[in-house]
Write a protein that binds this DNA or RNA. Structure first.
Lengths: 411, 411
DNA sequence: AGAGGTTTGTAGCACACATGAACAAATATT
DNA sequence: AATATTTGTTCATGTGTGCTACAAACCTCT
């Protein structure tokens, strides 16, 4: 529950004070937010359940739900007897027509989706992206086209906000891409560009795909209900996201959770970041393929082959996974000591190869008996490749959920 | 500046729902908390400044400040003309008689202080602790005695809450010491023990000294006003604390920020945690002394000698610091990639030797040009050895500041 | 020295919101 | 069919903040 971060904390910076004083209106905003967030995250609930969960009085819940229904976020279905005594309570559910636009910019693909409240995907499109990337303009034209197709398919949806996942570093205070080496982008105002590409003029939030994949996993995936989670995903690069006590680690310039360049092996290979033995060089796709005797730059085809070989019991493939698993374990140890998480979720390459890395990882953990590692479980990603896109949707929803009436329709 | 964390988030766990609904009374609690927190953190302010900072109306501020004055937290001094036009606003300041008890349990010393609102130290006592530790009972007898002396000296103080800093791992949900190897403690219910030792039956919070030192630095020290800070302190062990977006990293069981056992050197020395090349073994006191050709177990005397030699330009001492500095830099890189902090504050050994490690650290950072490292500044601790004790006081104040009326006096 | 402008404190009223009690409605149980 | 239980609805109530006058205290300009 509850990582609808207070928008105040994240947005303001510098001189402007916190404006920490609250008045009656923010009280109602908070209660509307609580109820809508609860239904969005946990699914339909009866009005009495809402009351129990929030601690609000019956009459208050009625008023709040009624308002959220009027503006198109919730709907109430007729009460159905459930076998228990007492008058049945109407069931409250989302109106999935209230939706957001989600974008994903990967190295080799682009994706757009319209996602309704409650997390239902109303429409979705994915397109390949040329490996050389093509021009930046071409990318935005493609995104705009995909967005139009998605909106046509989900033509009854009302778009409230938008979120963008990108394989690169984002200063999310400004929405600017600080650096996306694998895309060849730098200093791009991605939010604005995406907005004009698809003709959406509402709020567009931009984040790193690692954080967004974790967002998705923590709302509807492998880390559901967890407040302390580390997410690691290896493709060409190694990305990640961190949820600590229900808050996403963002950092001063929004560059937190960049675990790809953790130094794990001072004697390792030189990374293009200038250092030796980065996490990325030890456990990334290229190194893994090279260890298995496959083409390091082979991309999806080669990784599929690698997984197939491991599944067939090929020793070299299994050993390659095991070696990566041990380095992965070392990185996990570092992260576990700093965050003391409940779970580590593995995505990308190590989701497909989860069976072949989980034991080496657990061996590394077992070698070190330290309280921060107690009860730590390593699990594979639940949502897989869909995670960043779904996370972008959840990011967009965060703004809506934090202040529903700010996005209310007039009808 | 707002790391009076909402007590709700930290305390509840498991099945009990968030009770996210809020009512008028919590509204007032929040506003009282905002004002008191502001004065406690930032010092005296005029009533109109309070209004500007919180966004509350003049009449609301008057009522809130009046209530906080009645119950003994604030006081208003007569308005003084300041040269600007308009009626002068009364200056609001804390009543330092409202105070907390702060405890510190170090390997070689014990300390107690009475600290008033606003951070004024009203009384303070420190005593050596036998290196073998003596019996646990003896430690608590000593703490009780020091506490009594402190309370006698500050006899007009009204103790509201207490905080304990300990050189060990604490599950702060329960207040239990999970493991304090350097003290030889395990599974001790420290909060309860300290309470009965000094006859205080209010709320006693217990945390690791690293987090608490950072708390102090972030409120009144080298990291004042920063929302993203990493604190590293090396003594015998290496401890630390992390503040990310204004929230202290605590982890699932409260064991977050345990940076001492970050793996930095797979070819390093074996650590008593079972691993090779922990941060602690590479940059801790013993290794540093050994590198300088001094007695690794010499304690304070030897470290003082080391600093003196470095100050005299002794090559071996300087080289020892430089080597540690490079490993320190590597650890800082790891932490900076994950947190993207604004500052890294160095305490303990590397505060005294700051001048001799800062350059090697910055060289390591410079070798890696990565956006997460941009603008990162390495600074020495401001509060030094006093930090953990002052941080324990701030921890205790957190509870008071979050709900002032819950600690109100009747007079 | 006095008038006018500016900022702030104070008091009273208005407004927004959540609450709780009382009653009605819908279901299960006996 | 009667009773118990749970919930929706309505309305009066209480709490808390905001706003508008008006008074007080200060500065500046003439």
């Amino acid at each position: 529950m509850g990582h609808a971060e207070a928008s105040v904390g994240g947005e303001r910076s510098g001189t402007a004070r916190a404006q920490s004083g609250v008045s009656s209106s923010s009280l109602r905003r908070q209660n509307l937010s609580s109820i809508l967030t609860m239904i969005h995250m946990s699914g339909p609930a009866s009005r009495s359940e809402i009351g129990a969960a929030t601690g609000l009085a019956r009459s208050s819940v009625a008023g709040l739900v009624g308002e959220l229904e009027t503006v198109g976020f919730l709907r109430q279905t007729r009460a159905v007897p459930d076998g228990r005594p007492g008058r049945p309570s109407p069931v409250v559910d989302v109106q999935p027509e209230s939706a957001v636009l989600a974008f994903e910019v990967e190295v080799d693909s682009l994706a757009v989706a319209v996602v309704g409240l409650g997390g239902r995907v109303l429409s979705q499109r994915r397109a390949d992206r040329a490996h050389d990337g093509g021009s930046v303009d071409q990318t935005f034209r493609d995104l705009g086209r995909l967005a139009n197709e998605c909106q046509s398919e989900a033509d009854h949806a009302r778009i409230l906000a938008a979120g963008v996942a990108i394989a690169g570093l984002v200063d999310h205070r400004s929405g600017r891409v600080v650096s996306a080496p694998n895309l060849g982008w730098e200093g791009l105002d991605l939010g604005t560009e995406v907005g004009s590409a698809c003709g959406f003029d509402g709020h567009i939030a931009v984040r790193n795909e690692g954080e967004l994949a974790l967002r998705a996993e923590s709302v509807r995936g492998a880390a559901q209900g967890c407040r302390d989670v580390v997410y690691l995903s290896a493709k060409v690069g190694v990305g990640g996201g961190i949820l600590s006590n229900g808050h996403f680690i963002v950092g001063r310039a929004g560059l937190g959770g960049e675990v790809g360049h953790l130094p794990v092996n001072p004697d390792g290979v030189r990374c293009n970041c200038g250092a030796l033995g980065c996490f990325e060089t030890e456990v990334g796709e290229r190194t893994l393929l090279a260890r298995a005797g496959l083409d390091p730059n082979g991309g999806r085809g080669e990784t599929a082959k690698l997984v197939a070989r491991a599944s067939d019991g090929d020793d070299q493939a299994l050993e390659a996974f095991a070696t990566s698993g041990r380095w992965l374990g070392l990185g996990i140890v570092a992260l576990a000591h700093t965050f003391n998480p409940e779970k580590v979720v593995l995505g990308g390459l190590y989701r497909s190869g989860f069976a072949y890395v989980v034991e080496p990882i657990n061996e590394v953990l077992a070698e070190r008996s330290f309280p921060t590692l107690d009860g730590l479980s390593i699990v594979p990603s639940d949502l897989g490749d869909a995670a960043p896109l779904l996370g972008a949707a959840e990011l967009a929803f965060d703004h809506v959920l934090a202040d529903p009436m700010g996005f209310a329709s007039s009808d």
